[in-house]
Computed example of a mutant assay.
Amino acid sequence: MLIVDAIFIGLLEASPLILAAMGFTLIFYLNGFMNIAYAESITFGAYFAILFNVVLGAHFYVALLPSMLLSGAMSVAVYLAIFRPALNRGVGPTEMIILSVGVSFLLRYGLILIVGPENLFLNEPSIVYMQVLGLGATNLQLVALALVFAMAGILYWMVYYTGLGEQMRGLANNRELAMASGINPHVTSMAIWFIAGCAGGMSGVFSGVFAQVTPYMGWNVILITMLVTIVAGVGSVRGAFVAAVVAGILTAFITLVTKPLYADVVLLLAFIGVLTYRGARTA
C-alpha cells in the first residue's frame, strides 16, 4: 500500500531530522535566537564518526557514543567562546542570528582547511536486509530508527519531567525570576547546549552513514530544520518531533508518486500554508 510505504520510508528518512529539530529547538527555546551554526554540530558529528570509525578503525556502533559526546563538547565550547559573551552583552536576536551565520562559516571552512573538501564514507556495519510488515529495510536503518526514537524519548523526558528541563523552561520564560529562585543560568545553559550538540552529532552520524559525509551536510539540512522548528512552535520539543515525522512521511509520499524535486517544493509550500493559517488564526 502506498500510504504504508510512505509512512515506513518517511519514518526511516526522518529519523536524523527528528534529532536535529529537537536539538535546534532546545537552543531556540533557551536563548531565543535561531542558531544557524547548529548546522555544524550535525556536520562535526559525522566527521567525528569518520575519525573513530575510519581512521581509528572502531566499529560503527562503537564510534557512535564518542562522536555524539564530542559534538556536545564542541557545542558547549562554541557557546562559551562566542555566544555567551554576546548574550551577556545584550546582543539582540537578529544580531545573534547574523553572528551564528558567521560562526557557521568559520567552523565549516576551518574544517575544510583541516580535512579537505572531499566527500568521505563511513564503514557500515554488516548489512542484513529484513522484512518488516512486508516492507524491506536494512538492519542499519532499523537500528538507527530505534536509537533515534530512544534518544528523542530521552530528550522529551528530560525537558518535561526532570529538574534540568524545569530549570531550562524557567530561564526561557523569566531569567531574572529563575536566577532569584536559585537556578544557575550558566550551568543550565551549558547542559542544554551539550545535550543539543549531542542530538545534532547523532543526527549527523546517521545522515552520513546513509549517504556520505561532506563539509556541507549540516548546512544542507539547516533550512528544513528551521522550518520544522518554526512550524512546531517556539520551544516545543514535542511539536518538533511531530513536525519532523510529518515532514519525513510527506516527503516520502510525494517522492513515491512523483519526482524528488517536487517533494521539496510541496514540503516548502506545506510549511508556508501552515504558517499562514496559524498567522490568520492569531490575527
Rank of each mutant, 00 (worst) to 15 (best):
L155E: 06
L80F: 05
V78A: 06
L177G: 12
G10V: 03
F121P: 08
A196S: 14
V187Q: 14
F241E: 10
G134L: 07
Q131M: 10
M74C: 07
T258C: 01
E95I: 05
T138Q: 01
Q212W: 05
I192K: 06
Y29D: 14
A37L: 02
L250P: 08
G239I: 01
I254D: 00
L12R: 06
Y47F: 12
V103D: 07
L111W: 03
A77G: 13
G239W: 04
Y79H: 13
V78N: 05
G45D: 00
Y29C: 08
I97D: 07
F271C: 11
S71K: 03
N53I: 09
V213A: 00
M179K: 13
V228S: 03
F48Y: 00
L80N: 14
V221T: 04
G153D: 11
A196H: 00
F44W: 03
A137L: 05
T282G: 05
F48R: 00
F24L: 11
V266F: 08
A180K: 11
E124W: 10
N88V: 12
I127A: 12
L111A: 10
A232T: 09
N53A: 04
A58T: 13
V246Y: 02
R175N: 07
G201K: 01
L268S: 12
G163T: 15
T251S: 14
G248D: 08
L147K: 04
I9H: 12
A146F: 13
Q131R: 11
E118T: 14
M34Y: 03
I112W: 11
N139A: 06
I18C: 02
L250I: 12
M168V: 12
M130D: 04
P66N: 13
Y38K: 01
